[in-house]
Computed example of a mutant assay.
Amino acid sequence: MNKIYWNGIRSFLAVAKHGSFSAAAEATGLSKASLSQQVSHLEQLLNVQLLYRTTRSLRLSEVGVQYYEMCKQGFDQLDAAQEWAQHTNQELQGAIKVNSVGGIIGEDVIAPLLIGFQREYPQINVELDFSSRRVDLINDKYDLVIRMGDLPDSSLIARKLHTLTTHYVASPSLMHKYPPILHPQELNQLPMICGSVTEWEFSTQNEQYKINFKQGFKIPNGRVMLQAAQAGLGVARLPDIYVQTAMNNGDLIEILPDWAQSTTLSLICPPSRYQLQRIKTLMDWLATHFQEQYDQVLLDKR
C-alpha cells in the first residue's frame, strides 16, 4: 500500500468524521481541494464510491459506512500501538479518559480512588466523566468505562470490580396503604421510582417476569431516587450501597427479598488501549482498592 492510499484513508476518515470537506479541512489543516483529491484517488484505487457529494450535502455510501468503521478501528489500534511502543521504557505518563456511573458509586467510591491514583502518579492526567448513557468505547475515545450490568460487546476487555445486590424498596408509609406484595406482578398497582432503567426484570430458576414503568417518579440519579423512596413516592430499585442503611434503620422496607438481583460492576476497556501500561496500572489500582473504599462508604452511611 502506497503513501497515496494511506493519505486517502486519513482524508476519508476526517471528512466522514466531521461531515464535510470544509470542517475536515479546518480540523486537519489541509485544503478542501487536497482532501477531495485524496478521497477521489482512494475511491479510484478501491473502485467503489465511498461518498455521495452534492453542492449542499455529503453522505456516506453503504460501502462507505462500513469502510469507515473498519478503517477507524484499524487506525485507532495503530495509534495505540505507536503510543505503547514510544512509552514502553518510559515513566508512566499521559492521559486517561474515564467514564463512570455517577451517584454514590461514582462520586463517593470511584472519584476518591482516582484522586488517590492521580496523587500517586502525577505524570498521568486523569479525566473523569460521569454519565448514565451507554458510551461507545471506540467512537467516544474513552480509555476506561465503569459500568453496571452485562457486557454489551464481547470484544472488549472487562474486569470485574464488585458484585452489587439490587433491592426493591419503599417507605413504610407507602406500604401500609397496600396489601403485602408477594409477587412482582403485584407491583403494577404501586407507583414506581425509576432512573435510566424503566423495565424491571425479575427472575428465579422457575419464573421470569417484567414490569414496565407506568406511573411514578423518574430521575436518573440514585441519590434522588433514594430520597423519593423515603418520601413515599413509590417503589425504587437501587443497589445496596444506596439503601442498606435506610433498610437497617427502618426508613425503607425491602419488597420481594427473594427476587433481589445481583449486578456486576465492571471495568471495561477497548483492546487497543489495554496494551498501554498506564491503563493497566489504573485498572490494577481500582481493582486493588475498590472493596476497601466501598466498605468505608457503607460504614460512613450508618
Rank of each mutant, 00 (worst) to 15 (best):
F217R: 01
W259R: 11
T245E: 14
I219D: 01
S262K: 15
P271V: 13
K214R: 08
Q261W: 06
M225S: 11
P220S: 07
P239C: 05
K280S: 12
T288D: 13
E292D: 12
G222T: 02
Y294A: 04
D295N: 11
V243S: 04
Q230Y: 04
L256K: 09
V243I: 11
Q293K: 14
Y274W: 13
Q215F: 01
L298H: 09
T263I: 13
L226K: 09
G234R: 00
Q230S: 11
E292N: 06
L238S: 07
D251M: 11
V243P: 01
A246L: 13
V297A: 09
V224G: 02
L256I: 11
P271C: 10
G234D: 05
V243H: 01
V297C: 11
T245N: 13
G232Q: 05
P239Q: 01
W259A: 08
S262T: 15
I241Q: 03
D284A: 15
S262I: 09
L226S: 04
I219F: 09
K280E: 13
F213D: 01
L233M: 14
Q277T: 15
R237I: 06
N249T: 07
M283G: 05
D284I: 12
L238F: 01
F290V: 08
Y209C: 11
Y209W: 15
Q296C: 03
I241N: 00
F217Y: 12
L226H: 03
L298W: 05
S272C: 01
R223I: 11
F217W: 07
L238C: 07
V224D: 00
D258Y: 12
T264Q: 15
Q275C: 00
L267Q: 08
K218L: 01
L276H: 07
H289F: 14
L265I: 13
I253G: 07
G232H: 09
M225V: 08
I219K: 07
Y274I: 03
Q291W: 11
D251G: 02
A229Y: 02
N212T: 12
I253E: 08
Q244D: 12
W285I: 10
H289C: 08
A228F: 10
I255R: 04
S266I: 01
L252H: 07
I241W: 05
D295R: 10
R273E: 12
S272T: 03
L282F: 07
N249I: 05
D295T: 12
L276F: 00
G250L: 10
E254A: 09
N212Y: 09
F290E: 02
G222S: 13
G222Q: 04
Q230K: 15
L256W: 10
R278I: 06
Q230N: 14
T263V: 15
L233S: 04
F290K: 02
L226M: 13
R273V: 02
R223C: 04
Q215I: 05
A229M: 09
L276M: 04
N249R: 01
C269E: 08
T245Q: 14
V235M: 05
M283S: 13
P270V: 06
T264M: 08
T263G: 08
A229R: 02
G232A: 10
L238V: 07
L226G: 02
F213V: 00
T264E: 15
P239N: 04
L233Y: 12
I268P: 02
K214I: 06
D295A: 08
